[in-house]
Simulated assay, not measured.
Amino acid sequence: MSTRISTRHRYQLVQEQGLSVADGIRGSRLERRRHDLADPALRSRTILAVAARWGFTDGANFSRAFRAAYGMPPGEYRHLHDFGAVRELTRAAQATTRTF
Rank of each mutant, 00 (worst) to 15 (best):
V86T: 09
G27N: 05
R45C: 06
I25N: 00
R43D: 06
S44G: 08
Q15T: 14
S44R: 08
G84Y: 08
F56L: 08
D23M: 12
G18R: 02
E16V: 10
A41M: 13
G55L: 03
S63Y: 02
D82Q: 08
F66C: 02
T96V: 13
D58G: 01
L13D: 03
W54P: 04
T97M: 12
P74M: 01
R8H: 15
H81I: 05
V86F: 14
R91K: 10
S28C: 01
P73D: 15
A38T: 14
A38D: 15
F56K: 01
D58C: 09
D36L: 12
Q17L: 12
D39N: 15
Q12T: 13
T96H: 10
R29N: 03
H79N: 02
A41V: 14
Y70F: 13
L80Q: 14
G71P: 10
Q15C: 10
G71K: 04
L48N: 11
A85E: 15
F83V: 14
D23A: 10
G75T: 02
A65T: 05
H9K: 15
E31Q: 03
E88A: 11
R87M: 08
F62Y: 07
L42Q: 12
R78M: 00
R45I: 01
V86D: 15
W54E: 11
T46V: 06
R45Y: 09
V14L: 13
G59P: 12
L89A: 12
V14Y: 06
G71M: 06
F100T: 06
G75D: 04
S28W: 00
A60Y: 10
I25F: 06
E31M: 06
R78N: 02
E31K: 04
T7V: 11
P73M: 02
A60Q: 08
D23H: 08
A52T: 08
R43N: 06
